[in-house]
């Protein structure tokens, strides 16, 4: 652990050209992520939070500024960094175990692959479903497979792009606990993009609040509650209120009351 920086983002900007117009999606973001931290990025839609993750994985180009992973400027996907997408993105014609093995490095030995696949299927609680096809699994189970697939590659930095967004409330809460357990066990650095305030507070060490159009860091809120956290805790609710205040700065007090 320690305070070693794994991800460093400096004055990052992103413009999109839509027709003849230039849209400033991200307008100068800077923050650092330390090794082993769990960070959430929260913001209304259009604040460029998913674009930010795409830039970290080099799926999108950088307009200005810099992204460094372990001191190295990102120009193509970094081997230390992996992403879990909102959809599970499993190959529909491959079984659970083959899907997890699919993204493992080709030079890895067969035994090592088998071992990794087995241990990660256990880790996400899918033992017995090794031979199942994605279409035979529920949405939550599919997302578990994609989590196992990401973790099997042993990333130092795991990006999560609203991975629970499409799931029902029960499954979502289950998977949040699961991710938390994995994080506590493996100490993988996690960067989670979400629009769910409770999820952000429940999981993270720090919450970065982005403003929209163009996306800018509005607040960097430290969450130092002990885990496991309780969503009805007074301190939990206090942090919730301060996140809401940041998100709805311009909104009326009544709007805010509604959300609280």
């Amino acid at each position: 652990m320690g305070n070693e920086t794994i991800l460093s983002i400096k004055e990052l900007k992103k413009d999109f050209r839509i027709g003849s117009e230039t849209v400033h999606v991200i307008g100068g973001i800077s923050f650092d992520v330390n090794k082993g931290e769990f960070i959430s990025i929260i913001g209304e839609s259009g604040c460029g939070k998913s674009t930010l993750l795409k830039m970290i994985t080099a799926l999108e180009s950088v307009t200005a500024g810099e992204i460094r992973i372990d001191g190295k400027t990102v120009t193509r996907p970094d081997e230390k960094c992996t992403m879990i997408f909102q959809e599970s993105r499993l190959l529909p014609w491959l079984s659970v175990e083959k899907n997890i093995a699919f993204t493992l490095p080709p030079d890895m030995s067969k035994e090592k692959k088998r071992e990794l696949v087995k241990s990660h299927i256990e880790l996400v609680g899918l033992s017995g479903f090794e031979k199942a096809l994605p279409s035979q699994l529920s949405g939550g189970m599919q997302q578990r497979v994609s989590i196992a697939r990401a973790l099997a590659t042993a990333p130092d930095l795991l990006l999560l792009d609203e991975p629970f967004g499409a799931l029902d409330a029960f499954t979502r809460i289950n998977l949040q606990d699961e991710i938390l357990k994995i994080w506590q066990k493996q100490k993988t650095t996690m960067l989670l993009v979400t629009h769910d305030i409770d999820e952000a507070i429940y999981l993270s060490d720090r919450i970065i609040v982005l403003s929209a159009k163009p996306g800018k860091v509005k607040a960097d809120i430290k969450v130092s509650l002990p885990r496991p956290r309780r969503r009805s805790d007074i301190e939990f609710l206090r942090i919730r209120r301060s996140v809401l205040l940041e998100l709805f700065e311009n909104g009326s007090q009544e709007d805010l009351e509604y959300y609280i």
């Binding site: 994985t57 996907p77 992996t82 997408f85 959809e87 993105r89 993204t103 080709p106």
Partner: peptide
């Protein structure tokens, strides 16, 4: 396209 994005992020080679 989403599967191709996955392949890119996970650095899978072109033949794969």
């Amino acid at each position: 396209r989403k599967l191709l994005e996955l392949a890119y992020v996970y650095r899978l080679g072109k033949p794969k």
